[in-house]
Design a protein around this nucleic acid. Structure first.
Lengths: 233, 233
DNA sequence: AAGTAAAACCTGTCCTACAGGTTTGGGGAG
DNA sequence: CTCCCCAAACCTGTAGGACAGGTTTTACTT
């Protein structure tokens, strides 16, 4: 397994622990050896083991809690979100690029969701679109429902990698969403944005992948235009 | 710089340092305060600062080196690669799901690459396809050229997020590639696989996005079929 | 056999120490 | 006055000890 970014001993220990998880076939929730035991087995100080543990916890590969032993973690987009935000804040990634990626994967997501969604998921997606309509006057609430809408779609796609990626973009989206909203100043443009979401929800509920994808394309056409209008490079 | 609370110290310090980078507008290469200074300013021990630094380094948000101060890092797929591998090894993600995502983004990448590639990039991509042809008898070399080929395409797309994602899948691809190769036992099937790459390279070099995308679709149709044949769920 | 209290174990945080590696500033040579 | 080199100051990597809580296991009591 490839090792990331720390130096010397800590790097090695991170690798050893990762390998340990893989070779022992540990599953999420399973407990890892204690810091003291690892420190003894690997002939390094507890300091080094702790720094390795913290690194793995930062990547959400393990989970730490006081008094308890470290456990194998479930995948989580938290770390990815931070990484993307860092890329944007340091001008290595711009918002247009994020939107191109989102458009690409979300048109696929909505196609899969229309095919695979359960009835419960269809209901949830419809409900979230309705909530967006209801909160068109409250940008903060609208944004949260918007994010939840796209997140629910990704779950309905039944591919956790899509959920992971959508989650990873959520952090930076939350920071730029208001910009897009401000560039939709008229009631008509705002209603259109919400209506587009309702259309997508209906298409997914109707199990019509074609139309769902078309709706999502429209949504992104409109969003990207809004961002360009706002001058967001 | 503010003083942090009394619980979850490391988490808080990670947040504070991230915020510091953002608010000061630090760019890759810029130096962060020393551990001693941070420890003093935030009223925590150096231990805590170090664990926070290691966490940020694991996510490739900062870079550490002995004797030198920590610096802001360039985005890098190392951490993402580890996270994806972890998801696969713990049965939270399967290979088919990875391939669906790769297909989705790589068909977009190849379209952009055909439009945006520089002449140098076109030459590099053609060269890598040629190298694949030349090493059709040497699986290890072939795999590396294959990975480099897709990586070069992502760079030619001029969207660093695509490069990041392709890089993130590289680790797990490296581990499963041999499975796909074994399920192409005949000379004809192997030649076809390599020929597909050459076709894609030519289409990109010819600035023909349509055909490049078609070629990439074909490539993934064939790859997914190969994996299914091998029984990889 | 079940419940409970103590013991053993474990993590979070702080501190000190020291071996190297790096940056800086000052002094000397030209 | 400028440039180079070296020593001092600074910085990180690793080890080890200490102790306050939180958690799990053990063993005893009922």
């Amino acid at each position: 397994m490839e090792i990331v970014g720390t130096s010397g001993l800590v790097r090695n220990v991170i690798g050893t622990i990762s390998r340990h998880i893989r070779e022992k076939g540990l599953m999420p929730g399973d407990r890892l050896p204690s810091e003291a035991i690892l420190s003894k087995d690997l002939n390094v100080s507890r300091t080094v083991v702790r720094e390795a543990f913290q690194s793995l916890a930062a990547m959400r590969i393990i989970e730490l809690a006081t008094g308890k032993r470290a456990t194998v973690a479930q995948i989580d987009h938290g770390a990815m979100s931070l990484m993307i935000e860092h890329g944007v804040h340091t001008d290595q990634i711009n918002i247009q690029q994020i939107y191109d990626v989102r458009r690409t994967i979300e048109t696929r997501i909505v196609t899969l969701a229309a095919i695979r969604r359960s009835d419960a998921e269809a209901a949830e997606i419809l409900a979230l679109a309705a909530q967006m309509q209801a909160s068109v006057e409250d940008p903060a609430a609208l944004m949260e429902h918007d994010l939840a809408f796209h997140s629910a779609l990704s779950r309905a796609s039944r591919n956790p990698v899509y959920s992971l990626l959508i989650g990873a973009f959520q952090g930076i989206t939350r920071q730029t969403w208001p910009v897009g909203w401000k560039s939709r100043p008229t009631q008509a443009s705002r209603d259109l944005m919400v209506a587009t979401h309702v259309d997508i929800a209906r298409s997914v509920a109707a199990s019509d992948p074609q139309q769902a994808m078309a709706g999502m394309s429209l949504h992104f056409d409109e969003s990207v235009r809004a961002l360009l209008t706002a001058g967001l490079s």
